[in-house]
């Protein structure tokens, strides 16, 4: 069963004719050609495919592409200012604290944690670990990821003051 869809990702509208069973993660990667979003377990456990649906982190591998119609999606490509441009402060903090090794899980982690950092809520280690409990990383042991998030949050708080 095929259907025409019109899906907005990072402010660009993608019009395609797709099978209704197409997963959102496959639409993002294969139709919109935005390969920053990674697919890990494909059953909602690893968090690698996390994107933002109307600003809220969701797993794109356990949602149908067609269900994203009428919503605004954001992927990791929306963070930095272009391919060679300035990194998002959260990405910059990840870079500085060595919060990634292979980087496969990073896009999902960034999209999971970005709304929390941007909310300005005071963060501590426990809160960050809770918010990232749904994102698996097999390289880092998480310590530097937590440090990166706290660093970005501290810088944001300073900038606001």
């Amino acid at each position: 069963m095929k259907q025409e869809v019109s899906i907005s990702i990072n402010g660009t509208v993608y019009e395609r004719t797709i099978d209704v069973r197409m997963l959102l993660s496959d639409f993002i990667r294969h139709e919109a050609r935005l390969t920053g979003t990674h697919v890990g377990c494909e059953h909602g456990v690893c968090g690698a495919c996390t994107v933002q649906l109307d600003g809220e982190p969701v797993r794109s591998c356990i949602m149908l592409a067609i269900q994203a119609e009428g919503h605004e999606l954001r992927t990791v490509e929306s963070l930095a200012n272009g391919v060679d441009g300035e990194l998002h402060p959260l990405q910059q903090a990840f870079h500085e604290t060595h919060a990634l090794q292979c980087g496969y899980c990073t896009a999902g982690i960034l999209m999971s944690i970005e709304p929390l950092v941007e909310s300005g809520e005071p963060l501590d280690e426990e809160r960050v670990r809770e918010a990232l409990s749904g994102n698996l990383c097999r390289c880092t042991g998480y310590q530097q990821i937590v440090e990166a998030v706290l660093l970005a949050a501290a810088r944001r708080a300073e900038a606001v003051e």
Binding site: L53, E56, P57, R59, S112, E130, G134
Partner: peptide, 9 residues
């Protein structure tokens, strides 16, 4: 219940 991303949906 699972994780924040799951509870959003």
């Amino acid at each position: 219940v699972a994780h924040p991303q799951i509870r959003n949906r």
